[in-house]
């Protein structure tokens, strides 16, 4: 993890983001399809059953899984287990010092719904699984970064899940142009780009979670005016490609974590009692 990237307040106002067709570059040097660099790590929090760190560009999310633990309330009200997700923004995660409570609730609502279907809760009767996620820095794409961090932490914790599910954020917007093709598809906006286009309402966003072994969509959230079949098809096609790539990395990351532990543990011994 590289240090020295925590910057509570930007030193200067970033240049207005640009978008263009074809091979031209975005303000941070990426093309429209490019996703920022990703880094992931398992086990940063040793006291948790499973934990993971996920970074995309400068957006950083840290997640830990505790449990399953017993819950009397769950035993009374339902035959299956429950997933409690707690998401917090670090005080230094965003430049402005406004309250993030509403945004936290909004994200928790969506993530809880998604992970209750991804984690096989029916196998955890009478139990509650506590998942915490903290956003260390918000530079756009928080929802998908948290989603990926939680997904990796859950896999690391040995929870029973349907699949390794990864998420990505995609956007499209109409750009006035003479040519016939005037819808621009963008991947993975930074905070500056989000602030410029998303808040003004000219950009359509779509957050997609895809089960990477099969190819079912586990999570879909979109807003905007361009959610027509053509655009949706384009966006989903791109999402699948990106999610598969992230899923591949996640498997490699888990494999590396387990290879280290499996080395240490001598090969299978049979029970002798």
């Amino acid at each position: 993890m590289d240090a020295a990237t925590y910057r509570p307040l930007p030193p200067d106002v970033p240049p207005a983001p640009t978008v263009s067709f074809g091979a031209a570059e975005r303000s941070d040097g990426r093309t429209n399809e490019d996703v920022r660099d990703i880094e992931m790590q398992t086990g940063p929090i040793s006291s948790a059953v499973g934990s993971a760190f996920f970074q995309i560009g400068k957006t950083k999310a840290l997640s830990a899984v505790y449990g399953p633990r017993q819950s009397m309330r769950q035993a009374r009200t339902s035959s299956s287990g429950a997933v409690n997700i707690d998401l917090k923004f670090a005080p230094f995660a965003v430049p402005s010092r406004t309250s993030m409570a509403e945004r936290e609730r909004y994200l928790v609502g969506m993530l809880s719904e998604a992970f209750e279907s991804i984690i096989l809760v029916e196998r955890y009767a009478k139990s509650v699984i506590d998942i915490t996620c903290i956003v260390l820095e918000d530079d756009g794409g928080v929802l998908s970064a948290c989603f990926n961090a939680i997904s990796l932490a859950a896999a690391h914790a040995g929870l029973e899940m349907t699949d390794i599910v990864t998420a990505t954020s995609l956007y499209c917007m109409e750009v006035p142009s003479d040519t016939s093709q005037n819808v621009v598809y963008l991947s993975d906006l930074t905070a500056a780009e989000e602030a410029c286009w998303l808040s003004s309402g000219q950009c359509t966003e779509m957050h997609v979670g895809i089960a990477t072994s099969g190819s079912s969509i586990c999570f879909l959230h979109g807003t905007g005016s361009l959610l027509n079949p053509t655009c949706a098809e384009q966006l989903l096609g791109r999402a699948e490609e990106i999610c598969r790539a992230i899923g591949k990395e996640m498997r490699a990351c888990l494999k590396a974590a387990y290879a280290a532990s499996q080395n240490a543990a001598p090969a299978k011994t049979t029970a002798t009692e």
């Binding site: 699949d163 072994s213 240490a264």
Partner: peptide, 22 residues
């Protein structure tokens, strides 16, 4: 790295699987 990390991977007889894998 742990002194154990460098020496090879999973033993060949056993298969490491991830959720969703057949």
């Amino acid at each position: 790295p742990s002194p154990l990390d460098s020496s090879g991977g999973i033993s060949s007889q056993q298969q490491l699987v991830m959720p969703g894998q057949v």
